[in-house]
Design a protein around this nucleic acid. Sequence first.
DNA 1: GTATGGATGTTCT
DNA 2: GAACATCCATACT
Length: 234
Amino acid sequence: MIHAATPLRIRRLQRAELPADTVALARFLIGKIVVRELPRGRISGRIVETEAYPTGDPAAHHYIGPTPRNRSMFLRRGHAYVYFTYGNHFMLNISAEVPGVGGGVLIRALEPLEGIPQMQAHRGTSRLLDLTRGPGRLAAAFKIDRTLDGVDVCAPGALWLGTEAKARPASLAVPARKRLASQPPPNPAPPVQRPVKVIIRQSIRIGITRAARRLLRFYEKGNAFVSGPARLRS
DNA sequence: GTATGGATGTTCT
DNA sequence: GAACATCCATACT
């Protein structure tokens, strides 16, 4: 695959940019960025795999109506729904519909961008491919737990959604020597290798039993950070 | 590479 | 008591 190196600049997504539909949002979020602000620094990762849990889906936690656990999925689109499952793992979802209507997108895998040493510490492994491949792993790497349930991810704070900003044209860039010494460069992240062309594919969802045949999983074809068996990654 | 079983805590039947 | 939007170690092809 052809790759090109570009500097990483992230701008926050506005809620108006998010499609007002769960399935459309699941597709839209592929290639967008999850940003976690922590005292020791920023962690970020590019979304490479999602699953839609749309309104009326019997596999979705919101299917039974609002409860104390799932109420965040009834918030206006762009809020975090974080829950705990299998006795060990937190899962990060993004609410997707209008207030009072249940809908969510599960973030299943990320490609690590910034803060990799912190992710390694949180996960207890140095293996890059194991840091954020799978919903439980990425939540651990990003230190995501119940305290982030209900957070607005379209607002500044501990957890938000971003997208890659276009590199500033050289003619408009502030020369480094004119910056105050105390101000860091706007984007301290190193250049990131990324595919020039991203192909988004669709499949059945992973790990569910109800409505198991619906094609509501989206992933970046061939990306090494996508979870699941090989036939659901290619 | 794929397959299987155990561990864990919350929610639901 | 069972199920669960999972992970890990282990066994095997």
